[in-house]
């Protein structure tokens, strides 16, 4: 039986919940934009390219002693570069979006594997593939926590300032352009915010399950809300509830936290669909 009081008094566990809470706030807000603009696989592509950055960081740290280029910075560099490549009209107009995602996704992962094989493991001990891909929130240190908090605050300020333009862009890009919005710049901003959100989220659930944290709460929120702002707020609340619920289960049953959070969100997503369908039928019945 888990001693919950002892567990919650551990700094490691407290840190885990703080990281999860920050990531949930950012993922809830950004995930809403991802879902309404149908960019789930763009997000998946960006998330997976970060593996290349993590590998590159370990390689540079171990072989060239570039100590400041941490795995998180490496992930951020790869995420932002891949996001900008996808957002540029020169690429998006000439190539199919899913082809670009496929190339970046696979090449990013492959570069990660190559860099990790070339690194000097006697100088730096890397996190395991499993920990990088499927997450290990318990390994997030104080420096990472501060970076995550700063990235989240900056991203939220940018979204709040550009909210009307982001709403116009995600609803009707043609009209946004006709209204005088520079859609290229706005798309780059949105893609970079998504890239930074991926970097924040992968600390909680790992590279492979980033999509769960970004997509599921927002998709659930979309079923029950009437406006973009409302969808963002409900998405954040759902994200926090489901992530905390998943983390508590993971501590209680002693199973990996990232995977538990993803499965919890998936199960509750199905429950939400059932509730929505049943509620719809009840409402329809009353109207008849």
């Amino acid at each position: 039986m888990v001693d919950w009081i002892a567990a919650f008094s551990m700094p490691l566990i407290q840190n885990m919940f703080i990281v999860a809470a920050i990531a949930c706030v950012l993922c809830g807000v950004v995930g809403t934009l991802v879902v309404v603009k149908r960019m789930v696989f763009v997000t998946g592509g960006i998330a997976h390219t970060t593996f290349g950055g993590v590998g590159m960081a370990y390689y540079l740290m171990s072989v060239f002693a570039v100590s400041w280029f941490t795995p998180m910075i490496g992930a951020a560099v790869f995420a932002v570069v891949s996001a900008v490549i996808m957002a540029l009209p020169a690429v998006s107009r000439r190539m199919r979006e899913d082809s670009v995602i496929g190339v970046l996704w696979s090449v990013g992962m492959a570069l990660g594997v190559i860099f990790m094989s070339l690194m000097d493991r006697s100088v730096v001990t890397p996190r395991s593939f499993e920990s990088i891909l499927f997450g290990d929130i318990l390994l997030v240190g104080n420096t990472e926590l501060k970076i995550i908090a700063v990235v989240t605050i900056i991203s939220l300020i940018v979204i709040a300032t550009l909210f009307r333009d982001l709403q116009a862009l995600t609803f009707d890009e043609t009209h946004a352009k006709l209204s005088g919005i520079n859609v290229t710049v706005m798309n780059v901003i949105l893609y970079v915010i998504i890239a930074m959100t991926c970097v924040v989220a992968l600390n909680v659930v790992g590279i492979v399950m980033v999509i769960a944290l970004i997509t599921i709460p927002a998709a659930m929120s979309n079923m029950f809300t009437e406006s973009l702002k409302e969808m963002m707020i409900v998405s954040v609340i759902l994200s926090l509830i489901m992530a905390f619920f998943g983390l508590i289960i993971s501590i209680g049953v002693d199973i990996p936290p990232g995977a538990t959070v993803s499965v919890t969100m998936g199960v509750l997503f199905v429950v939400a669909i059932v509730v929505k369908t049943a509620f719809g039928k009840i409402t329809q019945g009353k109207m008849e």
Partner: peptide, 13 residues
Amino acid sequence: PISAREVVLMGMR
């Protein structure tokens, strides 16, 4: 997720 009013307001951009 947007109301008719919000869509119309977009025109003012």
